[in-house]
Design a protein around this nucleic acid. Structure first.
Lengths: 186, 186
DNA sequence: GTCTATACAGCGATAGAC
DNA sequence: GTCTATCGCTGTATAGAC
């Protein structure tokens, strides 16, 4: 067990950050190799499908994280408002308080979308559905529409925060959306 | 005056669509040449700075369109609520009802941002400022925060609409944001 | 101004030695 | 499993004929 690289998941995490900062087209195999600490040959040993497989596995990993940390609690929690508050907290932490973008959102905005359309669609569909279910259980009218507003608001806040180099904008938006939602429940 | 290409602006418009659909890294000179109908050599005659200059001019063109069609009316209109309504209308038309993404937003989400940081920052800053000014004149409290919410909401709605391949979601979000804003003014 | 031909670097991917 | 060397190709950019 080498010191520099414990396991495949560690490599995948570093690969994810390369896709995050350079986009799919901009993430070269050289950069992926350097960041993961694996030679190109080794990369193809782990990911025979090459760059596309690496990106697909990164998306799958993100998806399962959100499923466990965000969607499932929204669906199963007894206390829906508390689960919604927890979602905002987990979201803020996941996106490093506005300093980290959403890879799903970034991939959606160029031709990369066509490659991973199913994964992107499922990610956003399930986020909206999980939040809408919690809002409905909390007694909110037009839960679906409100959920779309919040998920879109999160994506847009990430975009603005990065364009303006102002992570605080993201945190401010999250906190206001959360307040507005809870006010709508009261 | 050739029939296929009236002027430089026509070429720029086609170039813009290539950047929009492929992103900065994904927009190859071959694609830009094919879309504009100009050989690579001719492209470098129009744009000596190459791909970076093309993208910069596309962003400048977008910026001046928004300045004239959106920011200036928000600043100067007598009837602020009407100007805000007009902004939503112009926004919906510009983004083809949700079928066209925001190039500024797309460029903000990967390493391309660093190349055009000033243009991206200015675009979003001025959009937020113009909307906030109109909201303030219409008597709204926390106009800055509301303006950030709307501009972020627009960006996020574009992202979701494209990820879910559902342009109607964008139009729905616009219409609801507009209603909420006007309700907040009353 | 337009094009074709080309330069050279970097791309994703593979082979094969160790 | 790891690496280095190399493949074929495409990338951006330029030169030069017309």
């Amino acid at each position: 067990m080498p010191a520099a690289l414990i396991c495949r998941d560690d490599a995948l995490a570093r690969i994810a950050e390369v896709f995050r900062s350079h986009g799919y087209e901009g993430a070269s195999l050289s950069a992926l190799s350097a960041a993961s600490g694996l030679g190109k040959g080794s990369l193809y040993n782990y990911f025979p499908g090459g760059k596309e497989q690496m990106a697909a596995e990164v998306l799958a990993h993100i998806d399962s994280w959100f499923e466990a940390a965000i969607y499932a609690p929204l669906h199963s929690a007894q206390d829906a408002p508390a689960a919604i508050a927890a979602m905002f907290g987990a979201t803020e932490r996941y996106f490093h308080g506005g300093g980290r973008i959403c890879l799903m959102g970034a991939f959606a905005l160029d031709a990369t979308r066509d490659r991973f359309a199913a994964a992107l669609q499922s990610y956003f569909d399930r986020w909206v559905a999980a939040l809408a279910a919690a809002l409905r259980r909390a007694g909110m009218q037009q839960a679906q529409s409100q959920a779309e507003a919040v998920v879109a608001g999160i994506q847009g806040a990430l975009t603005l925060a990065r364009a303006l180099d102002d992570a605080a904008l993201f945190r401010r938006r999250l906190s206001e959306m959360q307040q507005d939602l809870l006010a709508g429940l009261a």
